[in-house]
Simulated assay, not measured.
Amino acid sequence: MTGQTLSHPQDATTPPDRLTHVNLIWIEQRVEHWIRFGDEAEERIIDRRRRVLSFSPDSVFAFVHWVANEHGSVLSRVTILRAVTPGQPYQTVPSVRPGGEILLAIGGWPKVERVLQAIDAIEAIGIDPTEVSLDHWRHLHNRLTAGQEPRAYSRLQHRAFLLRRRAAP
């Protein structure tokens, strides 16, 4: 996985910013950052090409980062993160402040496309990707990184996850 694990001490005189901020840029066919899924808590529009979406602690979101030049794609990346609470350790991710818990980080268009298809399949069975088991995103990351076929997320698996989460203290 990419990123560096950090813990950011807050200045005692300022209240901690509890949100995770993602800088989004859209310059058609050059730089395209977007959120594939996630429930943003705030949005700040900077100009017609830039905005900042902010996420509450423990929320899960997918950030897609694509860059091209005159010769074609230079970078394709999808990162699924869990926003952290101030004081929790986190991993840094470009364009994400302060960072988050990385559940999946995949680069290269063929693998990014596989992740986007997996998200589509989860939505197709009526499950919100923000509610999916964190372990499933890790599984998807590990299997795609190893060049193996990931298991599809099922309603039965989701139900078991929800029951375990409800039973946890």
Rank of each mutant, 00 (worst) to 15 (best):
A41D: 10
P9F: 02
L24K: 06
T14L: 15
A160Y: 06
H21Y: 05
A152Y: 00
P169A: 14
M1T: 14
F63G: 12
N69W: 07
L144H: 08
G72F: 09
D47E: 08
R44E: 04
I102R: 05
D17Q: 08
G38D: 03
L75V: 12
F37D: 03
Y153V: 14
L53C: 08
L6S: 04
D135T: 09
P169E: 09
T130L: 04
R50W: 01
P57L: 07
D135I: 10
E149L: 10
R114V: 12
I106G: 09
T130A: 15
W137Y: 10
Y153P: 07
S54K: 02
N23L: 14
R77G: 07
R49S: 01
R143M: 15
R159M: 12
R138V: 15
V74E: 14
D11E: 10
Q4T: 13
R36L: 11
R51Y: 02
E28D: 10
V60C: 09
W26T: 07
L81D: 01
I106T: 15
T5S: 14
R155W: 01
R138D: 08
R51E: 03
V132A: 02
I125V: 14
P150S: 04
S54F: 01
E42M: 08
L6N: 05
Q29S: 11
L19M: 08
V67E: 14
V31C: 01
R82Y: 01
V64I: 13
A168F: 13
